[in-house]
Every structure is written in C-alpha cells, then in structure tokens.
C-alpha cells in the first residue's frame, strides 16, 4: 500500500526530470518551448466554458428536480432483476453522467456500509474502473471544435455498462457477497 502511494507521488516529478534532462542534452531552449506550448493551454481551458456550463446546468437541473430519482425508480426493478445490488444502482447510473456526483455517492456508500464491506468494495471498483463519459466527450470534442460526435457517445455508454457488469462479477468472485 505504502509503495503504491509512493509510486504515485514519484511518477510526476520523475517524468518532469526526464523531459528536462533530455531537453538539456539536446540543447533545446526548454523555458521558451514551455511558454510557447503553455499559451495554448489558457485558450483551450477558456474555450471549454460554454460546453461545460451547458452540460453541467442540465445535469444539476436533472438531479435537483427529482427527475433522476424518478428515472432510477422506474429502471431499478429491472436492474435488481438482472443481479445489480440495489444500493449500487444510483452509482452505476450516475457514473457516466457526473464525475463529482459519482464521487459524492461513492463516499456516501463507503460511509454507510464501510469501505471493506461488499458494497464498499464494489463501489470503489466501479468508481475506479470507468470515467465520466459525458464529461470526457464534452471536453475533448468541445475543445477541438467537433460538432458531430458520430458513434462516440454510444460506444462510451455501452462500454460503461460493460464496466459495471465486469465490476459486479469480479468483486463477487474475489470478495464474495
């Protein structure tokens, strides 16, 4: 455990060190290149504002109005029927839509059931194993000015469903229910 946190602390600085030493060896004006590249970053981040504002307003209205709970309530019996534990349903559902929402929900589950319970382990696995599809697509395609996403959203959401199924199966096998 301690080695994992050590590794994650060391990765970034070591990466930086490699880049800088390589630049020094190749006699590249590193600082000028950094500034030049960094200028794009500001533009990019700012250009994302309208995309994210649109998406996040919609998500928070959807959640605050109770429409989310209604939708969940209507599909919950089906999900429980195919073997999804009832406590985990809201998390599985919100994970692709809202990263912050999922993080909050996972913390609630860990607080309620304990991190080492079956639900706690399942929630942790689910949280770690997929990303917020809607956010990823909004940010990447928004910043690059791609208007027509093609099949990207369908692919992302179907992959999320596969991730949820895989989490449930592997946690049941490894830790038992």
């Amino acid at each position: 455990m301690s080695w994992i946190s050590t590794v994650s602390l060391w990765i970034l600085p070591l990466l930086l060190l490699t880049v800088l030493i390589h630049a020094a060896v190749k006699k590249i004006p590193a600082y000028d290149s950094f500034v030049e590249g960094g200028k794009d970053g500001f533009q990019l981040a700012i250009s994302l504002i309208p995309y994210l504002v649109g998406m996040m307003v919609a998500i928070s209205v959807f959640r605050a109005s109770g429409a989310m709970e209604l939708l969940l309530g209507s599909i919950k019996p089906f999900l429980i029927f195919i073997g999804v534990p009832a406590d985990i349903v809201p998390l599985a559902f919100i994970r692709p839509i809202s990263g912050a929402g999922a993080l909050g929900m996972m913390s609630d589950l860990l607080a309620e059931h304990g991190p080492d319970s079956f639900i706690g382990r399942l929630a942790s696995t689910m949280q770690g194993s997929t990303d917020t599809t809607l956010y990823v697509l909004t940010v990447y395609f928004g910043a690059a000015g791609i208007k027509y996403m093609g099949d990207a959203l369908k692919v992302g959401l179907l992959a999320d469903a596969a991730g949820v199924a895989a989490s449930i199966i592997i946690v049941t096998i490894v830790f038992g229910s």
């Binding site: 880049v19 630049a23 590249g37 794009d40 970053g41």
Partner: peptide
C-alpha cells in the same frame, strides 16, 4: 498550461 508547456518541450 503546465502540461502543454511540458509536452512542447
């Protein structure tokens, strides 16, 4: 800004 700067190097 930071990562695009480093990537440019």
């Amino acid at each position: 800004v930071f990562w695009l700067g480093i990537m440019n190097i």
